[in-house]
Design a protein around this nucleic acid. Structure first.
Lengths: 159, 159
DNA sequence: TGAGGATCTTACGTGAACGTAAACGTCCAA
DNA sequence: TTGGACGTTTACGTTCACGTAAGATCCTCA
């Protein structure tokens, strides 16, 4: 028993090497994200080493998702996650305030921003799905032609 | 009647300025595509001006689709459209040859390449759709909270 | 305590996909 | 036939998202 057994998805804070490894990005990428104010490590060691907690790692995943999946650039992503942060902050304020008007304003902002992103994503889904279906049709046509001109075993062999 | 009325989606060949305008890209982009062998204009005027036909314009659209929608880079796109070209060429060969084995080989290549792309696109659709649904859930939660704390007319006003 | 691996800052380099400018040639309506 | 819009080549510039190298510093463990 030289170290604590790790249970659950690892709640400890790690330095940049392990953080990068876990997030599947380079150390340079993490430093760059910090450079442009996209992801600031939650703390530093006494000597100045960056320390990342699970929240930061999750954020990297989100950033990559927005980048690769949706195709946003880092500037746009900064906007999105920035607003999400703000929602989180406001969530606290929400729970602190009893003023229903303030609560409503905060919620409205969160709602509208999420709706905007949703609309964008939904549109993209539609377009890509159409593209996918088009490809599927092509495949069906090829298969049909193939069935007419090539015996079954030739196709199996080509796998 | 100083010019022919244009019917149908314009079958005439145009020079780079109009081509770029119609395709929604810059002239530089078209020249660049030619530079990297992605899109060669179908002909030139006697003086050397590039001339683009409707096929080329459609191809630009396809390139942009693969680029922006799927997120392929131009090198990958060159592979995809190149193989598509090859399929087109082979389609002719297909109709010329009576050798069923050659026909089968051509079809198999077309099929497999299309299947590979389809798989990739389908996977992306799944992921993005999941993302979209996640956003939809968030929106639903916000709406619920909002319904509890904000009167209807305030929301209508915020539209 | 000290050796060596991890991390720090600073700064220049890189590849993709074009943008932009200069100097020259083409096209066509008046 | 000519003037102005349009097009050509050549070549250097730019932005984004990092890569990479250097030299100093930190952390950890024997």
């Amino acid at each position: 028993m030289t170290e604590l057994p790790e249970l659950a998805p690892d709640r400890r804070r790690v330095r940049i090497g392990e953080a990068a490894h876990r997030a599947g990005v380079s150390e340079r990428t993490l430093r760059y994200y910090e450079e442009i104010g996209l992801l600031v490590p939650s703390g530093h060691s006494s000597g100045g080493c960056r320390e990342y907690g699970p929240d930061e790692l999750a954020r990297v995943a989100r950033i990559r998702e927005l980048q690769e999946l949706i195709g946003l650039n880092l500037e746009e992503i900064r906007g999105v996650v920035g607003r999400e942060d703000r929602i989180g902050t406001l969530r606290d304020a929400f729970n602190q305030t009893d003023d229903p008007r303030e609560r409503g304003a905060l919620l409205l902002e969160a709602l509208e921003m999420t709706e905007a992103l949703h609309e964008r994503v939904a549109a993209k889904v539609e377009r890509i799905a159409g593209f996918r279906d088009e490809l599927a049709e092509r495949i069906a046509r090829y298969r049909e032609l193939l069935g007419e001109s090539v015996p079954e075993r030739a196709r199996r062999q080509a796998r």
